[in-house]
């Protein structure tokens, strides 16, 4: 998805060489050339900062208000929740890694989960604040690792983020991709409860990248592996790391036979061309499990009536062409 490429804020300083060339031709005194150089450098830095900031904010808004993008992120979030396989009807506290402007977190709100989110882009977090998502937000570079106490979260999701860990930020050793990946996975592993799962959708540029990332995750102590949905469709193909802590056992049925103590089976990727809405599939499964677990004891995390009411409102809004129609956009 090309939109995700715009968050590094690299802008080539095109105009500089031209300005410098003409300066060198017209000015003869060395000192004025130097002075001009310094001025040009200062102006350039200012312009870059301004452009980056404007771009950051504008891009964050554009990313968030694009309906097609909202739908793609929402679908992948529902699929990630399905792969998380949380015990049905039990409240959970989740981590949204690279939560951005809250497109993924908003689904967690809707499904009644409490969550905390981290992201490195202030402009994205600002949009998340404006949109009044309910999770606690942190400005954090996931390549620097987490400080959460052991067992803090019942699960973690990450939607379209960790490909960014493959870029080296500077030449310092702590910013080499292997070091950042290792720091990320090790500290993520310890901040998750045992048993639980982390599901990370990302955009690899090659199979080697997938294997490399999965290798670091395994070294950090994770079980599980790679799940590829619609592997043969250029458009619908999606790569998920489905990582297990302590066997990854959830309470859900649906995927994995394991149960008990052993390692759960890795869920299968979706096949074929048909893209059933991930939301529909996720909620159908939840309904099934609720029905199975009925007996009044299990309550939804949020008041069920509230969820149903909200759904109805949503359905009303679906009348217009917005596809997902979730009130607040």
């Amino acid at each position: 998805m090309s939109l995700s490429l715009s968050f590094t804020g690299h802008h080539d300083p095109q105009p500089l060489p031209l300005t410098l060339h003409s300066a060198l031709f017209t000015l003869h005194s060395l000192s004025s050339v130097l002075a001009l150089l310094v001025c040009a450098a200062i102006v350039l830095v200012l312009v870059l900062v301004l452009v980056a900031r404007y771009y950051g904010d504008a891009e964050a808004k554009k990313y968030t208000s694009n309906t097609r993008n909202q739908q793609i992120q929402a679908d992948m979030t529902y699929r990630a929740l399905e792969l998380l396989n949380l015990p049905p009807g039990q409240p959970a506290f989740l981590l949204d890694i690279g939560c951005g402007s809250g497109l993924s977190g908003e689904i967690l709100d809707e499904e009644g989960y409490l969550w905390a989110g981290v992201d490195v882009a202030p402009s994205m977090l600002e949009v998340a604040l404006e949109r009044e998502v309910e999770g606690d937000l942190f400005l954090q570079d996931i390549g620097q690792g987490f400080g959460f106490r052991p067992g803090s979260f019942d699960g973690a999701i990450s939607i379209s983020v960790i490909q960014w860990l493959l870029n080296a930020e500077t030449s310092h050793p702590t910013s080499s991709p292997p070091h950042r990946l290792q720091r990320f996975f090790t500290t993520l592993h310890s901040s998750l409860r045992s048993p639980s799962r982390a599901v990370l959708q990302f955009y690899p540029s090659s199979d080697e990248q997938v294997q490399m990332i999965a290798g670091v995750a395994r070294k950090a102590g994770f079980g599980g592996g790679v799940v590829v949905d619609y592997p043969n469709s250029r458009r619908a193909r999606k790569v998920f790391l489905c990582l297990f802590v302590g066997g990854g056992g959830g309470g859900g049925s649906g995927s994995g036979q394991g149960g008990g103590k052993g390692e759960e089976e890795l869920p299968k990727g979706l096949e074929g061309e048909e893209e059933e809405s991930a939301r529909v599939r996720f909620e159908r499964r939840r309904e099934r499990e609720r029905a199975k677990a009925k007996g009044g004891k299990r309550k939804a995390v949020k008041d069920r009536d509230w969820i149903l009411k909200k759904k109805e409102e949503d359905e009303d809004e679906d009348e217009d062409e917005r596809g997902r129609g979730r009130g607040r956009w």
């Binding site: 981290v118 490195v120 604040l129 400005l139 620097q144 702590t174």
Partner: peptide
């Protein structure tokens, strides 16, 4: 600031 803690570390503080 704005309800968001800044957890970023300087290079020499990264583990």
């Amino acid at each position: 600031s704005n309800g968001i803690p800044n957890m970023l570390l300087a290079e020499h503080e990264i583990g």
